Simulated assay, not measured.
Amino acid sequence: MATIFLVYNIARVGRRTHLTSLLLTGTAFSQFLTAIISLIMMLSSHEMRKIYFWTLGSFSAKSWDHVLSVLPYAVIGCALILMYCRDLDIIMLGDDSAIRFGVETEKVKRNLFFITALMMAACVSVSGIIGFVGLVAPPVVRLFTGPVHKKLLPASFLTGGIVLAVCDTVARSVINSEIPVGIVTALIGAPFFVYLLRSKRNEVM
């Protein structure tokens, strides 16, 4: 959470937090922390396999105890996020329009930023770093539910879980030895995300 706090405050310009600044600051901190993880891996050769699987994302050797340890963060976090559905719908009109409708855009963004960061930290502490699920699932769900967040968010939560379960099944069965599920999500998610970006660009053109 200390890292999240630093990223958010460094990315702020005046009273506003711009998306570009947030992404660039997050990328810089990500590279810095990746270097620290690499150093730990180098110094802890006897724990190399566990750390390696964690960096790639894996459910190997996980039990229901791990699920129960994350469950409160997931349930409470999802409930809090759903409380902001109306505000998110209005913010889609643009920050200036949302402010005219009485939405405190910076407060909403800040609260959601820290709520999702706490949820993500809890999940990553158990499963490791699993990428692309959160980037791919919502755009696909949006095609069926539309942009209304009251429908979009719950459907995205459910779809993300289903996608992850399918990828984990593939990771456990595609070869004799289990491979980290993060590899499967990256192999499937990265090309699909590029396809979505190209589709959006073609729509704009």
Rank of each mutant, 00 (worst) to 15 (best):
C167A: 15
N202K: 15
V141L: 06
Y84C: 07
S156E: 08
E47D: 15
L24F: 07
D89S: 05
F29S: 02
G102P: 04
I90S: 00
S173E: 10
G131S: 11
L33G: 09
S21C: 01
C85Q: 12
P139R: 03
E178L: 11
V13Y: 09
L71P: 10
R201Q: 14
T34R: 11
T20R: 00
V124H: 05
L71H: 02
G94R: 02
A171H: 04
T3D: 08
S156R: 14
K62H: 04
R201M: 15
L164G: 07
A186W: 09
K62A: 09
K62M: 11
V181D: 07
W54R: 03
I183M: 11
T159V: 13
M205P: 06
V181L: 12
V148W: 04
G189E: 12
D95I: 03
S30R: 04
G57C: 04
L196V: 11
S199G: 14
L88N: 03
L24Y: 07
A155T: 06
K200E: 15
S58I: 07
L19S: 11
L6H: 09
R15L: 13
M120E: 04
A28I: 08
F5H: 02
L22A: 06
D65G: 15
E203V: 08
I175A: 10
V7I: 15
G128P: 12
W54P: 14
A98L: 05
R15K: 04
A186E: 10
N9Q: 13
F101T: 08
L88I: 04
F29V: 06
I129D: 00
L33V: 13
H66P: 13
H66E: 11
L153E: 06
Y84E: 01
E203Y: 12
D87N: 09
K50Y: 14
C78M: 15
A165I: 13
S44M: 11
L187F: 15
I129A: 13
R142K: 12
L112I: 01
T159K: 07
M119A: 03
E104H: 05
M205E: 02
M120H: 03
K107W: 04
D168T: 05
F5M: 08
L82Y: 12
E47G: 00
